[in-house]
Design a protein around this nucleic acid. Sequence first.
DNA 1: CACTTGACCTGTCCGC
DNA 2: TGCGGACAGGTCAAGT
Length: 289
Amino acid sequence: MPELPEVETVKRGLDKLIVGLKVKNVESFWPKSFQASKNDTKEFLVGAKIIQIRRRAKVLIIDLDTKYSLVIHLKMTGQIVFRSDNAVFGAGHPNDSLVGKLPDRSTRVVFDLDGAKLFFNDQRKFGWIKLLPTIEIPNIDFFKRVGPEPLNKDFSEKDFIKRFERKQNSLIKAALLDQSVIAGVGNIYADEALWGAKIHPATRVKDVPIPRLKKLFNEVQFVLQLSIEKGGSTDKNYVDAEGKKGSYLSFARVFRRENQPCPRCGSTIEKTRVAGRGTHFCPKCQKIA
DNA sequence: CACTTGACCTGTCCGC
DNA sequence: TGCGGACAGGTCAAGT
């Protein structure tokens, strides 16, 4: 699910909804979904105040005033949904939330925020929330390896090209998906950006001419930025912090558009498998090299 | 080292 | 209607 734009959208929602609230209690229904010792939970979570929300790569970080943080990875199907205790749901009271009454059968963790609740729903149970000392976060393996944020102002075209230098023999799509090259791109935006740059997903990095790599830099930034503006991509599961869908997929050029005409040349978009992932591309305007 | 496969899980869809 | 298999936005470990 959630790639950079989706996690960023959740982050912005939580900025408005939960900063300043106190955690009154937490309840977990699946061990891997919430990883924290009983003692840490009691000492550093219950009673703590939420002071700040951050995002790095596809990871969400909720900083508490106890020098601890909730570190969250939504993986494929995770949702973080805020709901006031007095919100009315169910028959006769529809709203525009994609999720209905909570908790539901995908709810793995519930945080009681004293008058509201934060639900961690995760159909496939791949996602997780860890309670960690804030200062330890940069030391976890993933953050030690992860590449730069592609939307940071100081991330240049030159930096982008340099990040691919050590991946010359990889397929370009595999390199884009590799979080140690650059952070935040997943299967949707890899396909979309490669279409924009007119690069076949199975091209070896070394066979991509530098001007195309420069184009790819622009396209990565473009699709991520556009998707943030559209509130991310909702295929099935993804919702923002208020339970609402994102609309990027109605703007997608190739992703989930197999057998439809390419918006640029009219050829039929194909779906194949590259780097172990379902891959959409236009066979006419995305030639190898 | 690069690449593939399997694992982690549940749910849905498609063909028989 | 039931059943088996493939597949789904991500990462990590192990094998080739």
